[in-house]
Design a protein around this nucleic acid. Structure first.
Length: 473
RNA sequence: GGCGCCGUCGCCAAGAGGUAAGGCAGAGGUCUGCAAAACCUCCACCCCCGGUUCAAAUCCGGGCGGCGCCUCCA
């Protein structure tokens, strides 16, 4: 497939470097709060990348996504809550896993947390390697990365340091640095903060800096540099990923990652959605508003991942409707009883499949891919109306939708949601029977009352010549 | 101050030199006890101004507008 690489600022043909296996690292969540749908835009898009690589390109994927469970925010949060750091971050990791499931994210091979012993040790070893290679200095008990020792520094972010606005921002790290651009690898111990020591590696008591986590865990769990893909939100380009490159390449002497993939922001009210701005929505927030996680997933896929996406409740409502059009079409297939097949449909199915795959292989163009799916929906609906569909066609259509959804992951999610409707299924069926009897005696007022009552409880009834079907609102 | 992205129908959104996909909403019709679903028909010359070209929404230049990054950030 073709994939945009932030490193080169262009699309390039992508294939894994070895073994037919894509080794991909994803910067995950800092677990000091529940992730919001802005965070999940990144994770959903990367889930579709992962699925595209697996199901459309035929590669194996080995993915690592970390939890940052030690940094200023998690430490402060734990202190405020009067909790142990580990217990404090546990809650948000559990919440993240719940949201992952709700959004239909595939299981990821490794989801390490920074404070697991083998990871801390890997970080310490990397710090030691950087010290050996002369990329560091110590000051006030902390160890820093010295940027002037890396001539290639800045190749990812391409920042022009000459033009930087002086004093645009003040470094929030209160640690003594020789140069404002240097960054901390290992923070010296402080009162009330967790601390680890790796004397055998020559690393004194303290805690890891943010950037070293990802470098160390990526190489520990994915093997030799360069890995194939390193991905995350676009806000991580600088400084996080730039610094990861400096560390990893300073320690190993090899390129860190072949491809860098960055997902654009989800914005809301024309501003980026972020916890510090207080304009975030979580999956439970969305559910409380009466929307379904599948609609969120759909909405997040309705725009290209490298374009900002402005979230509104209105667009979430549209997403809900669009998704319903897909599931309604599939439900209509149940009404087909004619055997055999009609000659028109097969080429349309083939064309849609090709367009779908081509769109995704073209730098993950999910919006265009959805367009291809809806064109098939129109063709199928029209064929059902004219009776030009046989059971063999139905099987082929279902198979096409199954394949499409292996990548989009949105129909299967709906199906899971539909398994637990707001009204118990046996109760719905009883109402349908009652309404059926009312209609037979032409008591339409009673029939309509039953339908309205169910609608108010979130269940819609649709009559057809072959019976009544229900669906969730 | 430096760098980058974006501006396509009422809303969302593909398209990136060859005459505008798709979704939502809307109008009219068919079907229905009524609905719903579905179908049919209708609904855009692409922010503005110049330029290149046989041909530009797509390329170039200049405006205007929006967003982002420049060490908390998915």
């Amino acid at each position: 497939m073709r994939l945009y690489n932030t490193l080169t600022r262009g699309e390039e043909p992508f294939a894994p470097s070895a073994d037919n296996t894509v080794r991909m690292y994803t910067c995950g969540l800092t677990v000091y709060a529940r992730g919001h749908i802005g965070n999940f835009r990144t994770f959903v898009c990367l889930d579709v990348l992962r699925r595209t690589l697996k199901y459309l390109c035929g590669y194996r994927v080995r993915q690592v996504m970390n939890f940052t469970d030690v940094d200023d925010r998690t430490i402060n949060g734990a202190q405020k809550a009067g909790m142990d750091l580990r217990a404090y971050t546990d809650q948000y990791i559990a919440a993240f896993r719940e949201d992952m499931r709700a959004l239909g994210l595939e299981e990821i091979e490794e989801m390490p947390r920074a404070t697991d012993e083998p990871n801390l040790r890997a970080m310490a070893n990397m710090v030691a390697a950087l010290e050996r290679n002369g990329h560091t200095y110590r000051s006030d008990g902390s160890i820093y990365f010295k940027i002037s020792t890396m001539p290639g520094y800045g190749k990812l972010a391409r920042l022009d340091h000459q033009g930087m606005k002086p004093g645009a921002r003040v470094d929030s790290d209160n640690y003594a640095k020789e140069d404002a651009r240097d960054f901390v690898l290992w923070k010296g111990p402080r009162e009330g903060e967790p601390s680890w020591e790796f004397a055998d590696a020559g690393v004194p008591a303290g805690r890891p800096g943010w950037h070293i986590e990802c470098s160390a865990m990526a190489l520990r769990l994915l093997g030799e540099a360069p890995i194939d893909v390193h991905a995350g939100g676009i806000d991580l380009v600088f400084p996080h990923h730039e610094n990861e490159i400096a560390q990893s390449e300073g320690a190993t002497g090899k390129p860190f990652s072949r491809f860098w993939v960055h997902v654009e922001y989800l914005i809301v009210d024309e501003q980026k959605m972020s916890k510090s701005l207080g304009n975030t929505y979580t999956i439970p927030d969305v559910v409380a508003k009466g929307f379904r996680p599948s609609a969120v997933r759909y909405l997040l896929l309705s725009a290209h991942y490298r374009k900002q996406l402005n979230f509104t409740w209105e667009s979430l409502g549209s997403a809900e409707k669009a998704l319903q059009r897909l599931t309604d079409c599939l439900a209509r297939l149940d009404l087909v009883t004619a055997p055999g097949s009609h000659p028109n449909l097969a080429p349309q199915i083939a064309r849609a499949r090709e367009a779908f795959a081509a769109a995704l292989r073209d730098d993950l163009n999910t919006a265009a891919a959805l367009g291809a799916v809806f064109e098939l929906v129109s063709a199928v609906n029209a064929a059902i109306d004219t009776g030009d569909v046989g059971l063999d066609d139905v099987a082929a259509i279902r198979e096409a939708f199954d394949d499409v959804d292996r990548v989009l992951g949105v129909l299967s999610l709906r199906r899971v949601e539909d398994e637990c409707p707001p009204v118990p299924v046996d109760e719905i069926e009883r109402f349908i029977e009652e309404r059926h009897a009312a209609r037979r005696r032409r008591d339409f007022a009673a029939a309509d009352r039953i339908r309205d009552d169910l609608a108010a409880r979130g269940v819609l009834l649709e009559d057809s010549p072959t019976g009544t079907r229900w669906k969730r609102k």
